[in-house]
Amino acid sequence: MIELVIKNYLDGHLSVPSFLERPQKSPESFVLFEKTSSAKNNYLPSSTFAFQSYAPSMYEAAVLNEAVKETVEGMIELDEISK
């Protein structure tokens, strides 16, 4: 399942935890992501995800968001990710 691939990658490359749904007891900073759509074309699956960064201040959330964007771009190294 691609969600687990992404979660494991984020958890291994970010200094904050990631979640697929908002936890009841949220840590001070974390990343929440969800699949917004999926499709299959020529037998190749594709998915679109939305990522949200949470932190104590808007500035810290913006800094975390930049780290998330950089980390997501790095996922191209995974065999399960093609673009």
Rank of each mutant, 00 (worst) to 15 (best):
F33P: 05
G74P: 06
F51E: 04
S18V: 06
L10T: 04
N41M: 10
Y43G: 03
G74F: 09
S26I: 02
E34N: 11
L14K: 00
Q52K: 13
L10Y: 07
S47N: 11
S47H: 11
F49M: 09
K35H: 00
M58N: 14
N41G: 06
I6E: 00
E34W: 04
S15W: 09
R22I: 08
A50K: 15
M75D: 06
Y54S: 07
P27R: 01
S47A: 15
N65F: 11
E34C: 08
V31H: 13
S47W: 12
Y54G: 06
D79Q: 13
S37E: 10
L78E: 09
V5K: 08
A67F: 04
I2R: 11
Y43E: 11
V72Q: 03
V72D: 02
F49I: 03
K7L: 07
A61L: 06
V63A: 10
Y59C: 01
A61R: 01
F19Y: 15
S15Q: 09
P45F: 15
T48A: 09
I76P: 04
P45C: 11
F30P: 06
K69W: 02
E34H: 10
N42D: 12
S29F: 06
T36D: 09
P23F: 05
A50S: 15
V5L: 09
S47M: 09
Y43D: 13
S38C: 07
K35V: 15
S57K: 05
F33N: 02
E80Y: 08
K40C: 13
Q52N: 12
E66M: 08
Y43C: 05
S15Y: 12
Y54R: 03
R22Y: 06
A67Y: 08
V72T: 04
A55Q: 08
S46E: 11
V63T: 14
K7M: 01
G12V: 07
A62E: 14
N42S: 14
F19C: 01
L14C: 01
L78P: 02
S57M: 01
M75V: 07
Q24N: 10
K25D: 09
M58V: 12
E66Y: 02
T71Q: 11
E3K: 00
I2T: 09
S38R: 12
R22Q: 11
F30M: 06
Q52D: 07
T71D: 08
T71E: 09
F33M: 03
S15V: 04
K35W: 00
M58F: 09
H13T: 10
E60W: 00
F33W: 05
L78V: 08
G74N: 15
I76R: 12
Y43Q: 14
E3A: 00
R22S: 12
T36M: 15
E34V: 07
Y59F: 02
V72C: 08
Y59D: 15
S82N: 14
L64C: 00
S29Q: 11
P27F: 10
Y9I: 07
N42V: 09
K25S: 14
F33L: 03
K69L: 04
E70H: 11
A67L: 14
M75L: 07
Y43L: 14
V31W: 04
K7G: 03
M1L: 07
E77S: 14
Q24M: 10
V5H: 12
P17L: 01
D11P: 00
N65V: 02
Q52H: 11
L64T: 02
F19W: 03
F19L: 00
S57G: 00
M1G: 13
K40V: 15
S82L: 13
E28W: 01
